[in-house]
Structure formats: structure tokens, C-alpha cells
Design a protein around this nucleic acid. Structure first.
Length: 568
DNA sequence: GCCGTTTTCGGCCCGACTGTTTTCAGTCG
């Protein structure tokens, strides 16, 4: 039974209780679920140690329920609740305009239990007859179902970032705009985002909002008020703008960056100190004591500045209060990229082109790592072509481009944990990345064994994308990270944070666990063209969300030290 | 249901916008 599965159960309980109109309990269950979800340790281990109640938000009652789930795989309480409220809650509530109260109303009056029922009811115009509902709500619900069916609910950070920056620039060019910043989950570098938040300060809110809803890419205006507006872009992405006065841009930025959970904790601190915190500032009575800048808000609450990527209420507030926040790695700390494909396998650019682009980015070194694989589609290298490629790399190095190329390869791990290239070839390389590209469906033991065995090969330096996930396409394979972390340390092997937009693997939870265990990380882009080198920002985002500093990331080392590490 | 440098009982974040209403509940973030 995994942490995630147990968390899901408590989320479900929270939803049902909310529908039933129960006060406070939903929050308590949700809080517990969040903390279980983000636990880096296996909850079964925590249970065995008798430490369940050490998890924040878990008390006597919930810990008893966790025990029941671990022992029996089920929870009677949830079953009972489900019988009382037999509704597809999670899906229903993902439809805009439907929250717990409306779901309850729809069930009570129209026996709507599922999206299917909902669609039918809306099409038959039954919903508009309910109290508090109308034509417009009905249309919005149908629209929402369409969106859900097209699964356009969440977007990959790497895919929305470019468009988002364009919008930021476009609005920023307005002379009326004093300050502008992205906020929300984009600013926190969350791997997927539901919408994009833009914060602007100006004396002319109407003008800015008018411009915003009239931008070229806007397909639909969802809401438009005097201080905020929401639009849907043609690609389906929702963008929200919030317009404030310059005097409280800081507190507004703090507020709109979130996360919600982080902000709730901050407000509690404010209350304890006799203050009140909102987007309009930090107040002592009626007096504003902080608002202009984000950092002042934290300061007046007795805290140092907390980087946006950490603001998830995962211990950052406690760490800040005791001045134990980590100094996070920055993109400019990265000295090179070690996961790059070229035309030799399935990349689209030649070695020299990629090298020049890497040099442009300020890198000191670049590791070429084309595929050695049995997957035909990637046009893999065999021994002969690999040796030939190494010659070409040497040739490019002689051109003195101001960047050093390292000879590497991304070699498949076979189903027994062996690399599909013999050691006498591997040892000629500067570095070896090992990765799993087949047999994803094997069980956790098998996968873990394959990875561990690969790490025991003396020439392996990095395990690429350790869980193999492709967001929105393929689930991660199960890996026993305790074992993998141990083996990584024992064998001086680094784990990769793969920066490709749909991978981001390790994810930030695992990256943080790795860091805490003292495992070294490498941030690689898995570039298949020179433009992909820019994905580094996403991997750095993951590392930052995982509390990693530059000392945790090997490709922040300069060339000499990195080379030494690679030679083990 | 959880939690505690105000508390083991009594709190539990805060505000904007919308639709459907004539003053507000529900949703959203």
C-alpha cells in the first residue's frame, strides 16, 4: 500500500464529508492526505515504527484508519460514506461551477451520480430549473464536460512557459503597467499547471484588463471584473490576471504565488502575532505594516524570504523560522549538460551545432550521450558507430570552441540488469548513463533489481529518468527508492533529474528524498535538438522544489572536479 | 478531526466574482 493510495482515500473522505455539510473534518482529512502524499518515507515503515502520529495532521483517529488500511487494504468508514453518497465526486467537482454543494443538490434533486448523468441532465435542460442554477450555469457545465473529455485539465509546465512569458512581455510593454510578475504554480515551477496567474500593478486597472481580455490568442473571456479577469486561450489554457495598486504589489505577489496551503500557514502566523494577512498587505489593526515587497511580508512575520519553489507547506515555514532553509541551486550554477542526443542517434543536430549552442548558454562542458539501445526507432549506435562518434567528438574538441565535449552514451539496461554494451567499450567513454527503455511493466522488485545491478557496473555514472514516467502518457514504474539510494551511494552513481517537459524524473519529492539521503544528482535535459538545451530551467526547477543546493548537483561542478567524480 | 509560547476546549484564512438574485450563497484560488 503506497502513500499516494492512502492519501487518495483520505481525499475522498474529505470530499464526501464536505458534501454532507460536515464542518472542519474535510479540512482535517485533506491536510492529513497532503502530508501523507508528500512523505518521503514509506508510510508502512512509519507505521511499523509506531510514528504515524508524528505526521502533521495525523492524530489518533486518522492513524487508526491508516492502520486499518495497511492491515486490510480497505477502510470500512469510507465504504460507509460511499454508500451514503454514491457519487463520482472527484470528476464531478473538477467541472467548473460544481463544488460540493452543487454536487449534493444535483444528486438530491436529479439523482446525478456521474459525469454521464450530468451531461444528460444538462442536455435535457433539467439543471437550469434548480434553485440557484440558470441557463448560463448549465452551459458552463456542458463546456466543462467537453474540456474534461478532451483531458485538457492540466498542462505541462514546459509547454506553457514560453506562451506565458510572451503574455507577460506583451502586457509588460503597456506604459500603464508599473510592475508585472507571473505568480501561482508557474512561479513555483510546478510540473503541471491548471492555469497561469499574472499579477500587475497599475493606476489604470481598467485599461490593463481591457487589453488583457482583448489579446490575440484569447478565445473566450471567462470572467472580467474591475481587479481581475480570466480568459481561455485558443490552446485551452486558462490565464488569470489580477490588477493591484503598486503599494501592495508585494503582498499581492505573495498571495497569488501560493500555494494555498503555504498561505494558510502564513496567515495563522500573522494571527498569532496579532496581525492580519491578505493580498492587500500585512495589517496591524488598520495599519499596513508590509505590502510593497514580498520580502517585507516574510520579514514582519519573523521569517526570511522563502523561495517560491519551496512554498508548498512541506516544512519550509518551520525551516525558515529556524533559519535552516537550504540555499537553492540556480540555473546559472549549472556548468554543463550531460544528457544530449545528436544526429548520431535520434537527435536532430550535429555534434558541433549542439556544442556551439551549449557554449552560447555559458556551459563549460557538454556530454554527448546518444542511444545504445535495442529500440530501433531511436536509431541507436552500435559498438562500431560509437567508436566512430568518439573520433568525431575528439575532432570537434580540437577546434577549441571554448567548451569541452565529453564522450558518453545512454546505454539500455536489459531485463537482467546488464548493460547492452560490453565493459571494454564502456571503459573507453568519459561517462555512461544507464537507463531502462523496456520491460516497464515488471514489478517493483524486478525493476529495482535491474537498476541496482546496473549501478554496480563500475563504468556506470548516472541512472537516467529513474521512474520512466511520461506525464499524461505513461505511469512511472515502481521503484524501491530506499534500495536505489543505498546502491547509488555505495557505487558512486548519480540519479538524474531529467528535464524533458513530460518527464521531470526524478520528480521533486524523490529529488528531495535523494538529497536527504546524500545521493548525488545530475540535471540533464535529454536534448534531442539544440533548442532543448533550454529545458535545463525545468530540471533546475525540480531540483529547487526538491530543496537541492548546487552541492547536490554534480553538473554544477567545474570540469576538473566533475571529471574526477566520473572517474570514480 | 487536529492542535496548542494565549488554549486539552474552542478555534480552524481571506477576499473577488458570478449567477441568480434583489442581498447572497457557492465557487474559486
Amino acid at each position: 500500500m503506497k502513500n499516494q493510495e492512502i492519501a487518495e482515500i483520505f481525499y475522498e473522505i474529505a470530499d464526501i464529508l464536505e458534501i454532507q455539510g460536515v464542518d472542519w473534518k474535510p479540512n482535517a482529512y485533506r491536510k492529513a492526505a497532503q502530508n501523507i502524499e508528500s512523505l518521503s518515507e514509506d508510510i508502512v515503515d512509519v507505521y511499523k515504527k509506531g510514528k504515524l502520529e508524528d505526521i502533521p495532521g495525523v492524530g489518533e483517529n486518522i492513524s487508526r484508519k491508516i492502520e486499518e488500511i495497511i492491515k486490510t487494504g480497505k477502510l470500512k468508514y469510507l465504504r460507509k460514506l460511499k454508500k451514503q453518497v454514491p457519487i463520482e465526486l472527484e470528476k464531478m467537482m473538477s467541472i467548473p461551477a460544481i463544488g460540493p454543494r452543487t454536487a449534493k443538490l444535483l444528486f438530491d434533486k436529479l439523482k446525478v451520480k456521474s459525469i454521464k448523468d450530468l451531461k444528460k441532465a444538462a442536455k435535457l435542460h433539467k439543471i437550469r430549473k434548480l434553485k440557484g442554477m440558470g441557463e448560463k450555469t448549465e452551459r458552463e457545465i456542458l463546456e466543462g464536460i467537453k474540456t474534461l473529455e478532451g483531458s485538457k485539465g492540466r498542462f505541462l509546465l514546459g509547454h506553457v512557459l514560453p506562451a506565458t512569458r510572451e503574455i507577460e512581455e506583451e502586457i509588460g510593454r503597456l506604459p500603464e503597467v508599473k510592475q508585472i510578475s507571473l505568480a501561482g504554480s508557474v512561479r513555483r515551477m510546478k510540473e503541471t499547471v491548471h492555469d497561469v496567474d499574472v499579477l500587475v500593478s497599475t493606476d489604470k486597472p481598467k485599461k490593463v484588463i481591457k487589453f488583457f481580455v482583448g489579446m490575440d490568442d484569447v478565445k473566450r473571456v471567462l470572467a472580467k471584473g474591475s481587479t481581475k479577469a480570466s480568459v481561455k486561450l485558443s490552446g485551452g489554457l486558462q490565464v488569470d490576471i489580477r490588477v493591484v495598486e503598486n503599494d501592495y504589489f508585494g503582498s499581492a505577489l505573495q498571495y497569488f504565488t501560493g500555494s494555498k496551503e503555504h498561505n494558510i500557514e502564513l496567515r495563522k502566523i500573522a494571527i498569532r502575532k496579532g496581525f492580519k494577512l491578505s493580498e492587500y498587505g500585512l495589517f496591524k489593526g488598520r495599519k499596513v505594516i508590509a505590502g510593497k515587497k514580498e520580502v517585507y511580508v516574510y520579514k514582519k512575520l519573523g521569517l526570511p524570504f522563502i523561495e517560491p519553489e519551496l512554498r508548498e507547506d512541506k516544512g519550509e515555514i518551520e525551516a525558515a523560522a529556524s533559519y535552516k532553509l537550504p540555499k537553492l541551486v540556480k540555473e546559472k550554477d549549472v556548468k554543463g549538460d550531460l544528457h544530449v542526443h545528436t544526429k548520431w542517434s535520434d537527435g536532430s543536430d550535429r555534434i558541433e551545432e549542439v556544442a556551439r549552442a551549449a557554449k552560447e548558454r555559458g556551459y563549460k562542458y557538454l556530454g554527448i550521450s546518444d542511444h545504445v539501445s535495442r529500440v530501433r526507432i531511436v536509431h541507436p549506435l552500435d559498438k562500431r558507430r560509437l567508436l566512430k562518434q568518439m573520433k568525431e567528438i575528439e575532432k570537434v574538441n580540437k577546434k577549441k570552441l571554448g567548451i569541452t565535449l565529453l564522450k558518453g552514451a545512454e546505454v539500455d539496461i536489459d531485463k537482467n540488469g546488464k548493460l547492452i554494451l560490453s565493459n571494454d567499450v564502456l571503459k573507453k567513454l568519459d561517462f555512461v548513463i544507464a537507463s531502462i527503455h523496456s520491460g516497464f511493466k515488471s514489478d517493483v522488485r524486478e525493476i529495482t533489481n535491474r537498476i541496482v545491478k546496473a549501478m554496480e557496473n563500475p563504468f556506470v555514472n548516472v541512472i537516467a529518468h529513474p521512474t520512466g514516467r511520461l506525464m499524461q502518457k505513461r505511469k512511472p514504474y515502481s521503484v524501491d527508492f530506499d534500495k536505489v539510494f543505498e546502491a547509488a551511494k555505495d557505487n558512486n552513481v548519480a540519479l538524474e533529474i531529467n528535464s524533458f517537459p513530460d518527464r521531470l524524473d526524478l520528480n521533486y519529492v524523490n529529488a528531495r528524498a535523494a538529497k536527504e539521503k546524500g545521493v548525488k544528482l545530475i540535471i540533464g535535459t535529454d536534448s534531442h535538438s539544440k533548442e532543448h538545451l533550454g529545458f535545463m530551467e525545468l530540471g533546475v526547477g525540480v531540483a529547487r522544489r526538491g530543496w537541492c543546493g548546487k552541492k547536490d548537483v554534480l553538473n554544477c561542478l567545474d570540469y576538473g572536479k566533475l571529471k574526477k567524480w566520473l572517474n570514480k
